[in-house]
């Protein structure tokens, strides 16, 4: 009787473990297929950028380059010596850096300050203020183009990097405030009370107590803001032109204004260069990204 029971249990266990392995494999295969699907364009971009134009014209889209040539990368980055009128990315890349770094820093800093004030220094109507910030997240880009253009004109900073920094800082503030507010809500108020009794003021508490434990949400905010601002085309193309344009606008100009022949290899290299910084940010800070997104639900 007992041996029978044991045998039965063993059978159940064995079939359960078989089932587990089967689903495990199914899962990996599905994940693999999706990964391939998403990575295919990147693959095409990279191999095309490494081919010569002749090879591109005759060859299949997916075949590996016969000979690896880096010339198109050089052309995309710093242009050709002999045709001076051409657009190349280097100066615009630095434009974008000069725009993104201050815009991310400013919007993240004030977002943190807002989130802190909204959660730890409650005031009458604070929820309404927060609601308005939330509303700001849903305002479409297009809706603010005209008023913003006028504002920049009045301030005398239209068609400048400074103007773009202002636009992105203000537009991003709704999101950064939302992020920090949700993070700080989960931090016990008692910590702030303790610091107040200890004699620290509004800013002292912010800088000494709260900011040092905000790393996860800072990473989330920086990735979010960096990606959005770096990849933005609409504000860039609307509020700037010529030398003050950010890289996405320059990329567009470069690809659309090439004179005679379409140079696919150069275009691909340029597109890839324009995407490198966001890729880098993800690779460097990505593991904190997920952690930060879920941090709100876990009590420290």
């Amino acid at each position: 009787m007992q041996t029978l029971d044991i045998q039965k249990m063993e059978n159940i266990e064995r079939s359960a473990s078989r089932k587990r392995t089967f689903y495990r494999w199914l899962l990996f295969i599905m994940l693999g297929i999706f990964a391939l699907y998403y990575l295919a364009p990147l693959y095409v971009m990279i191999i095309t950028s490494l081919k010569s134009m002749e090879e591109i014209r005759q060859g299949n889209l997916m075949t590996l380059p016969g000979e690896i040539i880096f010339d198109s990368w050089k052309t995309a980055w710093s242009g050709r010596d002999y045709d001076a009128g051409n657009v190349f990315l280097r100066p615009f890349f630095w434009n974008s850096i000069k725009m993104v770094v201050p815009a991310v820093a400013i919007s993240a800093f004030f977002g943190a300050l807002n989130g802190y004030a909204l959660t730890k220094w409650r005031f009458r109507g604070d929820n309404l203020v927060f609601l308005l910030f939330l509303f700001g997240c849903f305002i479409p880009y297009q809706a603010i183009l005209l008023p913003m253009a006028r504002t920049l004109g009045v301030l005398g900073i239209s068609n400048s990097i400074t103007g773009l920094v202002v636009v992105h800082s203000i537009y991003g503030l709704s999101f950064t405030t939302l992020f920090f507010r949700n993070y700080y809500v989960s931090i016990p108020d008692e910590m702030i009370k303790a610091a107040r009794i200890d004699g620290a003021g509004f800013f002292k508490i912010f800088f000494k107590v709260l900011l040092p434990i905000s790393a996860p949400i800072i990473v989330v905010t920086v990735i979010w803001q960096f990606t959005n601002i770096w990849n933005d085309f609409l504000f860039g193309s609307t509020f700037s032109f010529g030398e003050a344009a950010p890289i996405q606008v320059a990329l567009n100009n470069m690809v659309l204004t090439s004179t005679s022949v379409k140079e696919y290899n150069v275009d691909m290299a340029a597109a890839f260069i324009a995407g490198i910084p966001t890729l880098l940010v993800y690779v460097l800070a990505g593991k904190y990204f997920i952690r930060g997104l879920t941090a709100g639900s876990v009590k420290g």
Binding site: P188, E190, M191, A195, I197, D198, V209, I213
Partner: peptide, 30 residues
């Protein structure tokens, strides 16, 4: 009068220590 000027000290249920500081800095912060 502000809490810091009332000559009081408070101990909380959740301890409310400052997570980023060492024990030493926590104690001498005030």
């Amino acid at each position: 009068v502000e809490p810091k000027d009332r000559n009081i000290a408070m101990v909380f249920q959740s301890y409310a220590l400052y997570p980023a500081m060492t024990v030493r800095d926590n104690v001498i912060f005030g």
